[in-house]
C-alpha cells in the first residue's frame, strides 16, 4: 500500500481548502459586512478563509500540472506501519488518561511501549514505567506545584 507524493499533495490541499471553507462559513454566521462604521466580527476571518482556499487551489493545480516532476512515494506500507505503531499507542494513552488520569495513562503507555517497541523484559518495563511516574509526580506535584489530572483511582486512594 503505497501513497504517492502527488496524491498526498492533492489530498492535503483539499483538506486545507475544506478548512478554508469552514472558516468562511463560520465567518458568514458572524457577519462579514460593515455595520455602524465598523467591520463585523466575521470580516477578517472571511478573507482569511478565502486566502486559504486560494492557496490550496493553486498548490493542487501546480501538483497536477507538474505530474512528471515529483512522483516519489510519500509513504510506503512498511513506513506507514512504523508510524501507526508509534502513533496509535499515544491515542490510547490520551483515551485512558481522559478516564483514569494522566499518571495511570502514562504508566500503561510507557509499560506497553517499553515492552513492544523497545523489547524490554517484563520486569524492566514495569520498573521503567514506575520510575517515569514517580519522577513526573515529584516534578509536577512537588517542585512546580502544577497538579496533573489524577482520575478516580488515585482520588479513591486519597491522592489529590
Amino acid at each position: 500500500m503505497d501513497i504517492s507524493r502527488p496524491t498526498m499533495e492533492v489530498a492535503t490541499a483539499s483538506a486545507t481548502a475544506l478548512i478554508g471553507a469552514v472558516v468562511c462559513y463560520g465567518a458568514l454566521q458572524n457577519g462579514i459586512s460593515w455595520a455602524d462604521g465598523a467591520p463585523q466580527p466575521g470580516y477578517f476571518p472571511f478573507y482569511i478563509g478565502c486566502l486559504i482556499i486560494f492557496g490550496s487551489a493553486v498548490t493542487a493545480v501546480q501538483t497536477l500540472i507538474r505530474r512528471d516532476g515529483e512522483t516519489g512515494a510519500f509513504l510506503d506500507g512498511a513506513r506507514l506501519r512504523t508510524v501507526a505503531a508509534f502513533f496509535l499507542p499515544i491515542v490510547g494513552f490520551t483515551l485512558i488518561s481522559g478516564f483514569l488520569g494522566l499518571y495511570i495513562g502514562m504508566a500503561i503507555y510507557v509499560f506497553y511501549a517499553m515492552l513492544t517497541a523497545a523489547k524490554f523484559r517484563l520486569h524492566n518495563a514495569a520498573l521503567t514505567a514506575l520510575v517515569v511516574v514517580v519522577v513526573n509526580f515529584v516534578i509536577f506535584e512537588k517542585l512546580f506545584t502544577v497538579p496533573l489530572l489524577k482520575g478516580p483511582v488515585l482520588e479513591y486512594f486519597g491522592i489529590y
Binding site: 499507542p89 502514562m106 510507557v110 517515569v132 513526573n136
Partner: peptide, 11 residues
C-alpha cells in the same frame, strides 16, 4: 527515548 519525549509532550 521516543516514548519518554511523548510523555513530556502529552503532559
Amino acid at each position: 527515548v521516543g516514548p519518554m519525549i511523548t510523555v513530556v509532550c502529552v503532559i
